[in-house]
Amino acid sequence: MSTPRFLTLPPGVRRTNIDTSRGSFAALEALPGSGVPERRPALLVPGLTGSKEDFLAVLQTLAASGRHVVAIDMRGQYESAGPDDASAYTLPALGEDISALLEALGPEPAHLVGHSFGGLVCREAVLSDRVRPASFTLMSSGPAAVTGATAEKSKALRDAIPEIGLEAIWQLALEPDYTGRGIEEEIIAFLKARTLGNSGTGLACMADEILTAPDRVDELAKHSADTGLGILVLYGEDDDAWEPAVQATMAERLNASKVVIPGAAHSPAWEAPETTAAALTAFWNQCAQGLK
């Protein structure tokens, strides 16, 4: 059964599916105005409770620089199908999906962006070295498992899904919160469709993964030094998932470029889209010139 569409797409952005060796993934796709990409493509990967729509505000701007830009739902997220097998949602398994997506977007290497949990997933793909991206951006992501209030929320989600299910979580917690904050009805309708479209098994398993993810920063730093892969650490100045200081330290350990987005918290692509798109485009252009 098809999922209702609630969000209006900007001009030049369309819904599609990306077929890979590991299955088909729902996607939003943007092309430059000419319809002919002149620069390397980009693959954008959302976080734990997110979806491809989290990048909706930056897709058109990123594509305008001459790129084919694709944002996807990971397996089991929103409109991408996923099995009830928990082993399909480990970080290494999800990383293999990203490698397959990079292959499908070839033959040119694509710039890879992972938001939040998606950054940890993309890191697995990069370290596997099955497909080498043109660059790697960790957007509002961290060196290892979340801690503090974000960890408590992730634990609550992980434990509640098998107990009461996503429908009850929506009715008892999420919908009252969104309504109380005065969020528009159209957005609430989309958030409901997205929440209930998730695989319960997948979401619970991914919540466990974000709570137990190991620190692989030193491995990534070595990989970057050995291969010349350019890395960007980008986050909002008020990020409330991984603390900004933690992400700044990660950037130093990686010898990576760093951009702090003013006026943004954990979702800079949504909260400050023009600044975020400009930062990504500038970094991608630097990588194309052989600069880090």
Rank of each mutant, 00 (worst) to 15 (best):
T147Y: 08
G118W: 00
S128C: 07
I261N: 00
C287V: 04
Q60S: 10
F117I: 07
A156T: 15
V113G: 00
T212L: 14
V233W: 00
I164P: 09
V146P: 02
A193I: 10
T281K: 01
R67I: 07
P143M: 03
M1F: 13
K153D: 14
G263P: 05
A26C: 12
M1E: 15
A144P: 07
R67N: 05
Q77K: 12
A110N: 07
E219C: 06
A64G: 11
V13P: 00
V259T: 11
A145Y: 11
G228W: 11
G23Q: 08
G165I: 15
Y78N: 12
A251L: 05
P11S: 08
D73I: 03
E152M: 13
K153L: 14
P109Y: 05
L9R: 08
N17R: 11
G148W: 11
V58F: 09
A134D: 02
A64D: 10
A104L: 04
L172Y: 15
G230D: 00
I98M: 10
T137C: 08
S257M: 04
I188Q: 12
L101I: 07
C287M: 08
I261W: 03
K155G: 08
G290Y: 07
S257F: 01
G66C: 12
A173H: 12
V121R: 02
A156C: 15
L127D: 01
A88L: 01
P107K: 09
R123S: 02
C122M: 02
G290N: 13
D54C: 07
W170M: 14
R15W: 07
A100M: 06
A86K: 10
K52E: 05
G76V: 14
A86V: 11
S87C: 09
V217I: 06
D85W: 08
T61N: 08
P41F: 03
S116W: 00
L112F: 01
A168G: 14
S80T: 15
D97K: 09
Q286K: 12
R158I: 13
A241N: 11
F283L: 03
G290F: 05
E219I: 02
A221M: 10
V259M: 10
D239N: 05
R216M: 09
R253K: 05
L174D: 15
L120V: 09
S199M: 14
P176G: 11
V113W: 00
A93R: 04
T90F: 15
E185P: 13
K258V: 05
A264G: 04
Q289L: 15
Y178P: 02
P268V: 03
G165R: 15
D159I: 14
S140C: 10
S199R: 06
A264P: 01
H111C: 03
Q60E: 12
